[in-house]
Structures are given as C-alpha cells and as structure tokens.
Amino acid sequence: MAVSAHERRTRILDVVRNAGSIRVVELAERLGIPAVTVRRDIAALAGEGRLERAHGTVSVRASEARGWRSGPGRVIGMLVPAVGAYFDDVVAGASAAAAAAGARVILGIAPYGADRDRAQIERLLDSDVDGLLLTPGWTPEEGLRGSDWLADLPVPAVLVERRAAPATPAAQLDAVCSNHRHGVLLALRRLSELGHKSVLLAARFDTRTAHEVRAGYTAAAHQLGLAELPVIDVSSSPGGEQELAALIAEAARSGARAVLVHNDQDAIQLPPLLRTHGITVPQDLALLAYDDVYASLSDPPLTAVAPPRSAVGAEALDLLLRRLKAGDSLPVHQLELLPTLKIRKSCGEPV
C-alpha cells in the first residue's frame, strides 16, 4: 500500500526530532524513501515552519520559521554540460543577475554523454539550494525524452537552452532558450541579400544547438527560395579541421560560394586552411559562423550569428526568482530570445 504524504512527513518529523540534526541522504536511507521524495517533503515542512534546512542537513526549528529564503540570500544551483566557450556567458549572465538580486549561484557540470545529470543535480540539492537552473547534457539522438523525473524535483527549476519533449511531465517546467532557427534565418537572409542562390551548411549534430541549426537551415532555405545543399557533418570528420576545409573546398570548386559553419570554434580555423586549397575568404567564398564566441578574432573577422547567451542566463535566473516568489500562481513560462547578426568582413561584397 502506498504511503500518503502526511504519513511520510510525520515519519520524517519523528526521525528528525530524535536525531536533532541529520543529513538528508541518511534520512532517506533510514526511512527507505527515495531522496528526491524526502527532499520534496522537507521543502514542504520547511515552508510550514516545522523544519530547517542547511547544507544538506535538516533539523527541527526551535524558533521562528525561516521557510525558503526570501529575497536576498537565496542560493541557486546551476547545471551546465560544459564550461568554456558558449556556456561561460550563460553562467556569467545568471551570476550577474543573481548578484543584483542578492542571491548567489553554485555551479555543477555534467559533461555531454556522461549520463551524470541526475548525480550532479543531487549534489546541488545537497547544498540546500532554493531552486535550479538546468542545462542537461541531452543529445539530439536522445531527444528530450527520459526527463520525467525533472518534474519531481523538490525545488523549482528552469530549463536553460533546453526544452522537454511535448506532453511530458517535464514539459511543465519553465524554460528560457535562444531561438536558433531564427538565427539561421538571419544568416541565410544576409547571404541571400548579397546575391547568393545557395548556402552550404557545415554543422555539428551532437548538441541541441546543432539540431536547431540544421532544422533552421532547411526551413530558411525553403522560405528564402535558396537551393538546399547536402550538409557537411562537422562532428564526424575524422580528419578534423583539415578534412572539413577539404570538403568545403571541394564544394566551392563545384559552385558553392557561401558557407555557414556551426560553430565558430571550427569556423575561425578555416580561412588559412582554405587558402592551402587556393580559396580565399571572402573573395572566393563567403564564410559566416554560428555562435560568435571567437568569430571576431578570425582573420578576416567573421560575420556571425550571436545567440543572446548572457541574456538567456539572466532571464532564466530572473524567471526562477519570480517562480520562487509566486509559486504555482505564476503560469508556466517558456521563453525564446532572438539572436542577432554581427556583420564583419568575411562575407564580402554583393556577388
């Protein structure tokens, strides 16, 4: 027979009263209840002023209830799949917004493909966070399936640069994302305005951004009346940048005069490599990058799509603080921020 929430919480209170103070993980083991359920019950009891949480431990409140931290003093856990490049700016945006609100961010990293999201989130919860900003390391092959457990987290959470699969429990989470399909449309529209009738796409496939860039390419080419060319798969090129340059050079010799490359870490290495094939940027080939992390440092500087990375982090943090304040009275928000196009020298003059 299933144990009711009231019965669970009564048992939790009994154990905590006897222990005085106990780690949440130990409490869950002692009761034989999943840790995520115990944390959810503790959060409810803390909100009622009956328990106090601090750094992964729980104790009975002997004085006025503190409840979940309100305003200044909130602690936000943030999960990202990597540091460096793209997510540095997302983290910086969230951290700056937290500081402005008197809160602070603690960071967890679960690399792509390592299947460590859940373990890292558990560690963040052990730090007694009030809420979570989550960028799980989901890959396009996995989709955003298998994420229903996120809906059972004991604290509010906002997905960052991620969306759960439609009609799943996790789809009811707040989310803040860049609209990468719009970013690709900006890129192809610029090249179309310069007179290009087709645009080659060289893109990764192993991240959500890459998936959205590829989908955006097909949609934008159709919308703008551009010929859709076979996509060059950046991720699976065993020869690295040299092979990528060779494939683009071969396409250029077959008539391609413009290429969009995701991401710009790959794109900035192409101009000197293409010169070894007798192709100069932008005279022979217009080159446009996606991400704009390093694009301005290329020679020549690359025109690039710039997702609003810092703003995504800040907006997600602000949304989480609103959720913590308003609770379920705030409708679920799933926001998309539009990238911009940074015009530099790598696309040249109209053809």
Rank of each mutant, 00 (worst) to 15 (best):
A164P: 00
D130Y: 01
G47L: 01
R145L: 13
G102Y: 10
G73Y: 11
A326R: 13
A220D: 01
A227L: 13
N263E: 11
I121H: 03
S310M: 11
R214F: 04
R309G: 00
E64C: 08
L194C: 01
A54R: 15
A252K: 05
D233S: 07
M78D: 05
S21A: 15
A99M: 10
L288D: 06
R253W: 03
V129K: 02
S346N: 03
A316I: 06
S235L: 12
E228K: 10
A35Y: 02
P156N: 03
G93A: 10
L338C: 01
G49R: 01
I33Q: 06
V105E: 09
F87R: 01
H262C: 09
N263L: 11
A202D: 07
Y290M: 08
A114C: 05
G216L: 02
S235V: 00
S254F: 00
D115Q: 12
T276H: 12
G73T: 08
Y290P: 02
G113A: 05
D264T: 03
P81G: 08
R11I: 01
D318C: 08
R9M: 11
Y217F: 12
R214N: 11
D233H: 11
K325M: 07
A306C: 11
D299W: 12
R74Q: 15
A258Y: 08
E122W: 03
A46D: 07
E243P: 08
H262V: 01
P271Q: 02
T10S: 13
R53F: 01
A256W: 00
G225Y: 11
I22S: 02
V351K: 12
L124T: 09
K342R: 15
V15T: 13
S147A: 15
Q242L: 10
G313N: 03
V234Y: 00
G32F: 10
G56K: 12
T135A: 14
E212S: 09
F205H: 14
I76V: 15
T207A: 05
E122L: 09
G77M: 07
P169T: 10
D299R: 13
R123Q: 12
V75C: 11
L186F: 04
L260E: 06
H262Y: 14
A227P: 00
Y112L: 14
E141V: 13
R9L: 00
L133T: 04
S59D: 05
S346T: 06
D264M: 04
R104C: 06
L330G: 05
W68D: 00
G77E: 07
Y217E: 09
A99E: 15
E193P: 00
S296I: 08
L302V: 06
P331H: 06
L320Q: 04
A246Q: 13
I12G: 07
L124G: 05
